[in-house]
Simulated assay, not measured.
Amino acid sequence: MDIATRPVPARTERDLETTLGSSWFRAITRINAELVGATADFYRAREVSPVLMPVTVNSVSSPMGLGSDSLPVRVDLFGTPTYLADSMQFQLEFMLRMDLPGAYYIMPTFRGEDPDSSHLNQFFHSEAEIAGGLDDVMRLVEGYVTALCRRFAESPVAAEIERIAGGLDHVLDLASRPRFPEVTFAEACTLVDPACVVDRGSGVRVITREGEQQLIDRFGGVVWLTRMPENSVPFYQATAGDGTALCADLLLGLGEVAGCGERHTTRAATERALTGHGVDPAEYDWYLKMKELAPMRTAGFGLGVERFLAWLLRHHDIRDMHLMPRLKGVPTWM
């Protein structure tokens, strides 16, 4: 189906009446329900535990790195300055110290930067942390994504997905792949147009969204981008000892759909990373103490639900994935 003919109410017309009458949002509702059920089934089979989390944090995670452009959302909570959760990764690491082999949740994430076709201020994160390293969590993400694809291809919503996306070939293709291709950051820089490799200063080099799309096309629709420069990723990603980080981004659809990485095991390694990234350790005292009292090798990932659904439906704008949108500068009707 052509994008222009899809039954998506324009964001400027998004209100109670148009949303209630939209076949698009009825489909989104059913697809969301299938994703949540499939996620629970996937992790139950692997003895990865669901956990309950608050929506506020004292220690933000995503903006903490020289190469990050993510902004935390600060609020006043009963007179105490705090932040809406940008990720609960640190708390998932804490939960593993409760004798869990793995922990996961699906919950809202809040960011302060301006929204666009591939970024939201409030989106849903499917996040997990496991005991193990980078390779372990990459295999977990591959298993999760292929399990979701199989579930969608076989579920009652398959016909709706096929109608909107114009087919299920992309879903069946991913469902059948035992492994996804991988390319290191250094290799990727030689494969994309030079203009797609940007230096943000302080030696921080990143690949632009256009560069991500070039990699997706080159590798047949999906690819892991691995071993980014350690100073271009958040401080909590473990390092390989050669100037690169033990992390990987899964590129699919609009770009990065999932990001994963291995964490520093000890307090000393985490403190060195904080210093190297120019991050004040004061707000991370509890995190550092946890690493001191209970050092543990863990790795985790976060998958953006709306970005995954945009790929699933072959849709061009992530802002159309929400029934109840929360966009910066746009008043909500409920």
Rank of each mutant, 00 (worst) to 15 (best):
V305A: 02
G329S: 13
T266C: 14
L215F: 03
A294L: 07
A273E: 03
A188S: 06
V330F: 11
Y104G: 10
V137R: 05
E142Q: 08
P295A: 11
M324H: 12
G203L: 01
M138H: 02
G241S: 11
V279A: 10
S87Y: 01
P81T: 05
M334Q: 06
E142P: 01
G220I: 08
G143H: 02
R314P: 06
L77G: 06
D217K: 01
V257M: 15
F219W: 05
L225I: 01
P115M: 01
R14P: 00
T184N: 03
R139E: 01
I3F: 12
A299V: 03
L251E: 02
T239M: 02
L134D: 01
V8I: 15
Y287H: 14
V73A: 05
P72V: 00
R307F: 10
P325V: 09
H316G: 14
C247N: 14
L174I: 15
L327Y: 14
M107T: 08
Y287N: 13
R163P: 04
T275A: 15
L20Y: 04
M1S: 12
A27N: 14
S155Y: 02
R151W: 07
W311V: 06
D99K: 06
P81V: 00
L71V: 10
D135G: 13
S118W: 04
E142W: 00
P63E: 00
V60D: 06
T226Y: 01
L134C: 08
L120S: 11
G21S: 15
G65Y: 05
E210P: 01
P229E: 01
G21E: 12
T265C: 09
T332M: 09
F90N: 12
R26G: 14
E212T: 05
L215A: 03
P194T: 10
P72L: 00
C196N: 15
P81R: 07
A38C: 06
P331H: 10
P229I: 00
E262L: 08
P181E: 04
